[in-house]
């Protein structure tokens, strides 16, 4: 990546930080979401593409955080980045639900100092923003993004320890457990924005296998006042779920904030 041109650098960072805002859909695809036994591996593909779950564009290179049923953080194994996809393995040794989560966060922006426009350094986050803007800077513009890309895997019976929210960005709180989805049973999820019920969020579910049908058939929904949404699955399969805030961005000159949440869900036949 050529970072000499600051505008290119910013554009590139923005793509990494907020994939949902762009045409390509980022996704994690586990080999299994429901697992029996006590000692198993699942392998996961991670990529961004137009046709969800077909890797034909870019790998997702970030290494996800593993939230384990017992509350500790786990590790992925065998991470490898290919031309079109990254892959990694997850060793399941505990009973219950695991959460794999890629968190992309950052702040891009610029300010004027002594008549010269400067870009915020790469890697600036909300936490380091204050230190990144020197005293005397004017015309500060910032755009913060927090994007999550997650999937869930359960060995044995589903558990809920991994759904503890951090209070930042959009997060999923199950009403229906994401590893207990069946055609014919409406699933309810609650989404939190910065730890509070995320009302009026746009929720889009797209079933995999786009290549083999003519219409995208997205399921477009909106969260209610409690941040809840009910999804009726049209058929079994893997689904890509994208959640973004509704509405126009902040006025020019005001700090911008872009939030996104993505998850891959498996729905079984009854």
């Amino acid at each position: 990546m050529n970072l000499r041109n600051p505008m290119i650098a910013i554009a590139a960072l923005a793509v990494v930080a907020a994939p949902a805002a762009y045409a390509h859909r980022a996704w994690l695809l586990p080999s299994s979401t429901i697992v029996s036994g006590t000692d198993n591996y699942v392998t996961v593909d991670a990529a961004a593409s137009n046709e969800v779950f077909f890797f034909d564009h870019r790998p997702l290179v970030q290494i996800p955080t593993v939230f384990q049923p017992d509350g500790t953080e786990g590790k992925i194994e065998n991470h490898a980045v290919g031309k079109f996809r990254a892959t990694f393995d997850l060793h399941l040794t505990q009973q219950g639900t695991y959460r794999l989560s890629i968190l992309n966060e950052g702040v891009v922006g610029s300010y004027k100092l002594n008549g010269e426009t400067k870009q915020l350094p790469r890697g600036t986050t909300a936490a380091t923003l204050a230190a990144a803007i020197p005293a005397g800077a004017t015309d500060v513009t910032t755009s913060e993004s927090i994007g999550r890309n997650e999937t869930f895997i359960t060995q044995g019976a589903p558990t809920n320890t991994v759904f503890k929210t951090s209070g930042r960005g959009i997060e999923l709180v199950p009403v229906t457990h994401p590893n207990d989805l069946i055609v014919g049973e409406p699933a309810t999820f609650q989404f939190m924005t910065d730890g509070k019920p995320g009302a009026n969020l746009k929720v889009t579910a797209i079933q995999g296998g786009i290549r083999y049908r003519d219409a995208l058939n997205p399921i477009d929904l909106k969260t209610d006042a409690q941040g809840k949404v009910v999804i009726n699955w049209p058929g079994p399969g893997m689904y890509w779920l994208n959640v973004t805030p509704e509405g126009a961005p902040a006025a020019p000159g005001q700090p911008q904030r872009r939030l996104a949440y993505i998850t891959t869900l498996e729905v079984l036949a009854p």
Binding site: I34, S36, G37, A157, P158, I182, L268, A269
Partner: peptide
């Protein structure tokens, strides 16, 4: 193959109804 338990989840209606809460 996980000592036989790996594929129990393929008996999927049972796995959801009862199997997943049994220790094997």
């Amino acid at each position: 193959e996980g000592e036989g338990t790996k594929w129990l989840r393929d008996v999927r209606q049972w796995w959801r109804a009862s199997g997943r809460s049994i220790a094997f």
